[in-house]
Amino acid sequence: MIAIIDYGLGNIKNVQRAVKHLGYDVILTDKQSEIEAADIIILPGVGHFKDAMQAIEQRGLKAILKNITDKPIIGICLGMQLLFEWSAEGNVDGLKFLPGNIVPIQTPYPVPHLGWNNLISDHPQLTRDVYFVHSYQAQMSEHVVAYADYGTQVPAIVQYKHYIGIQFHPEKSGAYGLTILNQALKGGFLNDQTLASN
């Protein structure tokens, strides 16, 4: 069972449909018992970092997520950014699961980073277009699995311990986006240079 965290913000229904399409059982929940019973947890998100952290804390989800150390937690879009230590968007701490901060995209190109952009990665199949919508980004680090070039290097997929972050919208990136989401659900990108098939 996959639990998608419902904290009142984000593209929750679209992510739910994508996960169901891949053949998984999935629930939307903010209940501790259901989150702890799930095999995989997805933290989605669209919107403002500070608002999201306030919603997470008000529902008691921060403490619940911090106690989960033995199963994958996958953050998507804003959900990926929430996994980091701090964000300049609202000058507020994140969940502190991933080392590093969230900062404004510094680029000569228009912001937000909106639309299709190519992934760059040592993984031979992580090199195609996916769909982005964001104005802030994670900092580059050794935990970046794939990034996009937008006048600057924009981390697109990160993996650290049992945490996986996906900055783009896999549910809006066609069949290829679903393949990447499926690989994240199967354990991520560090141990296999070939993406799992659907």
Results as ranks from 00 to 15, higher is better:
residue 72 P to I: 00
residue 72 P to F: 02
residue 73 I to V: 15
residue 74 I to D: 08
residue 75 G to Q: 05
residue 76 I to F: 04
residue 77 C to F: 05
residue 77 C to D: 04
residue 77 C to W: 05
residue 78 L to H: 03
residue 79 G to Q: 08
residue 79 G to K: 10
residue 79 G to F: 01
residue 80 M to D: 03
residue 80 M to V: 02
residue 81 Q to I: 09
residue 81 Q to K: 10
residue 81 Q to F: 07
residue 82 L to F: 02
residue 83 L to W: 11
residue 84 F to A: 07
residue 84 F to L: 07
residue 85 E to G: 06
residue 85 E to S: 14
residue 85 E to T: 14
residue 85 E to R: 14
residue 85 E to K: 15
residue 86 W to C: 08
residue 88 A to G: 15
residue 89 E to L: 02
residue 89 E to R: 11
residue 89 E to H: 11
residue 90 G to Y: 08
residue 91 N to H: 13
residue 92 V to Q: 14
residue 92 V to H: 12
residue 92 V to T: 15
residue 93 D to S: 15
residue 93 D to H: 13
residue 93 D to V: 00
residue 93 D to L: 13
residue 96 K to V: 01
residue 99 P to E: 10
residue 100 G to H: 00
residue 101 N to H: 15
residue 103 V to F: 00
residue 104 P to A: 11
residue 104 P to Y: 00
residue 105 I to Q: 12
residue 106 Q to L: 05
residue 107 T to A: 05
residue 108 P to I: 04
residue 109 Y to G: 00
residue 110 P to V: 13
residue 113 H to C: 09
residue 114 L to Q: 04
residue 115 G to Y: 02
residue 115 G to S: 07
residue 115 G to I: 11
residue 116 W to M: 14
residue 117 N to Q: 08
residue 118 N to H: 12
residue 120 I to A: 10
residue 121 S to F: 07
residue 123 H to R: 02
residue 123 H to Y: 13
residue 123 H to N: 14
residue 124 P to N: 10
residue 125 Q to R: 11
residue 126 L to S: 04
residue 126 L to G: 10
residue 126 L to D: 05
residue 126 L to E: 11
residue 128 R to T: 03
residue 129 D to G: 02
residue 129 D to W: 13
residue 132 F to T: 04
residue 133 V to I: 14
residue 133 V to W: 09
residue 136 Y to L: 01
residue 140 M to Y: 03
residue 141 S to Y: 10
residue 141 S to G: 05
residue 142 E to W: 00
residue 142 E to T: 04
residue 144 V to H: 11
residue 145 V to H: 05
residue 146 A to P: 09
residue 146 A to R: 07
residue 148 A to E: 01
residue 149 D to Y: 06
residue 151 G to Y: 10
residue 151 G to T: 10
residue 151 G to F: 07
residue 152 T to M: 04
residue 153 Q to F: 05
residue 155 P to T: 02
residue 155 P to I: 01
residue 155 P to R: 08
residue 156 A to I: 10
residue 157 I to E: 12
residue 158 V to N: 14
residue 158 V to A: 05
residue 158 V to G: 09
residue 160 Y to G: 06
residue 160 Y to C: 12
residue 161 K to V: 01
residue 161 K to W: 01
residue 161 K to S: 11
residue 162 H to K: 15
residue 163 Y to R: 13
residue 166 I to Q: 08
residue 167 Q to E: 06
residue 167 Q to A: 03
residue 168 F to A: 08
residue 169 H to F: 04
residue 169 H to D: 06
residue 169 H to I: 02
residue 169 H to R: 01
residue 170 P to H: 12
residue 174 G to F: 02
residue 175 A to S: 14
residue 175 A to L: 10
residue 176 Y to R: 05
residue 178 L to Y: 09
residue 181 L to G: 05
residue 181 L to S: 10
residue 181 L to E: 11
residue 181 L to T: 12
residue 182 N to M: 00
residue 183 Q to W: 00
residue 184 A to G: 01
residue 184 A to L: 10
residue 184 A to K: 13
residue 185 L to I: 12
residue 185 L to V: 04
residue 186 K to G: 14
residue 189 F to E: 13
residue 191 N to K: 15
residue 191 N to V: 00
residue 191 N to L: 05
